[in-house]
Simulated scan of single mutants.
Amino acid sequence: MDKAIFYPMLGMATLTFGVVVLLAKRRFAAIGKGETTNLAFFKTFRGESPEPEGVQTAQRNLTNLFEMPMLFYPACIAAGMLGKVDTVTLSLAWAYVVIRFVHTLVHVTGNDVRTRFKIFFLSNLPLMALWAYIAF
Rank of each mutant, 00 (worst) to 15 (best):
L10G: 11
G11T: 02
G11L: 04
G11W: 03
M12N: 06
T14M: 13
T16C: 12
F17A: 08
F17M: 09
F17E: 08
F17P: 03
G18T: 04
G18C: 07
G18R: 04
G18M: 01
V19S: 08
V20M: 11
V20W: 11
L22K: 08
L23D: 00
R27K: 15
A30C: 09
I31D: 03
K33T: 11
T36P: 01
T37Q: 13
T37Y: 12
N38D: 12
N38I: 09
L39D: 07
A40K: 14
A40F: 05
F42E: 04
K43G: 13
K43T: 13
T44L: 10
R46Y: 09
E48N: 10
E48Q: 10
S49N: 12
P52E: 06
V55K: 01
Q56P: 04
Q56T: 14
N61Y: 03
L62R: 09
T63R: 13
L65T: 06
E67A: 12
M68L: 12
M68N: 09
M68P: 02
M70Q: 04
F72Q: 01
Y73K: 00
P74M: 07
A75W: 00
I77V: 15
I77P: 00
A79W: 00
A79D: 01
A79P: 01
M81C: 15
G83T: 09
K84S: 06
V85P: 00
T89C: 02
Y96A: 06
Y96G: 01
Y96W: 13
V98I: 14
V98S: 11
I99P: 00
R100W: 01
V102F: 12
V102D: 04
H103E: 06
H103A: 03
T104V: 09
T104G: 07
L105A: 11
L105S: 05
T109A: 13
T109P: 05
G110W: 14
N111F: 05
N111V: 03
V113E: 13
V113Q: 12
V113T: 12
T115M: 15
T115E: 14
I119G: 00
F120M: 02
F120H: 02
F120N: 00
F120C: 01
F121T: 15
L122Y: 07
N124T: 15
P126R: 04
P126S: 05
L127F: 11
L130V: 12
